[in-house]
């Protein structure tokens, strides 16, 4: 059975054996720019996913890269959101640490974009990802993840410290980033959920 999900920039068709993510045309921008962006982003997303995989992060296998669409493996897993515990949060921290030490920012780290299958956690949806080594970008990435913990899990404090423990174990620059996360919280800038 196929399920269709619509985001701001893409339509994702989830079938049994494969996922097709198509970046849709935006009529508000000129054709040259629209096509360039959709083409470049589709390619970049495929590259970011395979780079993440090389860093040891489970991501769906890419079967095909079209002009504006990606065909990839369907991960039959459970969103971390539904099964999270301290161990899961620690594992998520290890993954994000690996990703950041490899110079990748995920851009949309939520417990819905992490799928648990067996003892592995798959990271999905690299649609907002980019290559960056700036402290601020890494801090925002972790902050966004913390926000989803705070908004949807009552024992978020334990989960946050478990995540930080995992993050420190796989990323040398972790302490500096976690300091920045506190500063970002204090600024209130990215606070999108009730405190």
């Amino acid at each position: 059975m196929a399920v269709e999900k619509r985001g701001a920039e893409a339509v994702v068709l989830i079938e049994d054996g494969r996922v097709v993510k198509t970046r849709v045309k935006k009529s508000y921008r000129v054709d040259e720019l629209d096509e360039r962006l959709r083409r470049e982003r589709t390619r970049a997303e495929a590259k970011l996913m395979s780079d993440a995989r090389k860093l040891g992060i489970p991501t769906p296998i890419i079967y095909d890269v079209g002009r504006f669409d990606l065909v990839m493996e369907t991960i039959h897993g459970t969103p971390l959101k539904d099964v999270i515990d301290e161990d899961g949060a620690r594992k998520a921290g290890v993954l994000v640490g690996k990703l950041h030490s490899g110079g990748i920012i995920h851009g949309d780290l939520t417990t819905s974009n992490m799928l648990v299958k067996g003892d592995r956690i798959y990271l999905i949806d690299f649609g907002l990802s980019f290559w960056d080594e700036m402290l601020e970008s890494r801090g925002v990435d972790v902050h966004v993840f913390y926000q989803t913990l705070i908004s949807s899990h009552h024992d978020h404090e334990k989960l946050m410290s478990a995540f930080a423990e995992g993050y420190r174990s796989s990323f040398k620059g972790a302490d500096e980033v976690l300091e920045r996360v506190k500063e970002i919280e204090y600024r209130g800038r990215y606070k999108t959920e009730a405190p």
Binding site: V30, E32, L33, R36, L37, I105, G107, L128, F130, D132, S137, V140
Partner: peptide
């Protein structure tokens, strides 16, 4: 004529 220029959206 549209000229190719950098498009910078980060997150």
């Amino acid at each position: 004529h549209y000229i190719h220029l950098p498009y910078v959206v980060k997150g």
